[in-house]
Design a protein around this nucleic acid. Sequence first.
DNA 1: CGCTAGCTTCGACATGCATCTATGTTGACA
DNA 2: TGTCAACATAGATGCATGTCGAAGCTAGCG
Lengths: 117, 117
Amino acid sequence: MSKLAQSVAGASAPPCCPSLTERELTEKEAEIAAAMFKALGDPVRLRLFSKVASHPDREACVCDIADVGVSQPTVSHHLKKLREAGLLLSERRGTWVYYRVAPAVLSALSGFLSMRD
Amino acid sequence: MSKLAQSVAGASAPPCCPSLTERELTEKEAEIAAAMFKALGDPVRLRLFSKVASHPDREACVCDIADVGVSQPTVSHHLKKLREAGLLLSERRGTWVYYRVAPAVLSALSGFLSMRD
DNA sequence: CGCTAGCTTCGACATGCATCTATGTTGACA
DNA sequence: TGTCAACATAGATGCATGTCGAAGCTAGCG
């Protein structure tokens, strides 16, 4: 998992950020969290992510999700962005490459956006 | 509230999207949701939003939150983006303009990112 | 009225980014 | 080894966007 993902999800480090409503973010925290949201801020990437996340075991072969209306290199480009943002993990198994949702990251982001009074 | 915000939060319309893990998003749904994430995908905007959200009553004067390291016109530009995305609402009261977090939108996004098996 | 303060809009500029085609890499299989 | 299929990378291009200074708008106050 990337350092970014660790920072946000707290897999092997303390969680990145408090709830958005708890206190204002520091410059550093904002930078980390914004990078995650930015990765989800493109329709094609969001669809790709959704396809992986809704697949059985939250894992899918590229060939299963590549039909999003753009060229194959563009799909690859977007999957790389999602990987770099710490949202997806990839693994090659023979001919195919499988992507799966990074653990803990989704719930971390969800908690980040939830009201916490 | 903007049409976008209504679509996502379901304030006066059915909610925009299922949970990300429930089923894959349609092209339309992805476009709507990505626009919200995109608005949060900039560090300066995220800090501004956090400042408003963590203020008492989730409401703040521009003068209270404008100190984020960029010029005042740039702050205004970003606040406009957050408004257009349906995340913030603005209201003029005398000399000052107050921004507050749009109701329902935050929890809608939070639910969107939460696992739902 | 004029002046000032708070905020928005305008115009310009540099950078970023989504997309494509072409090419490279990696693994399976005959 | 040669060939094909599945993905990734490289390079180019056009549009989007973050930033600024300058100018415009609106409300309060002498």
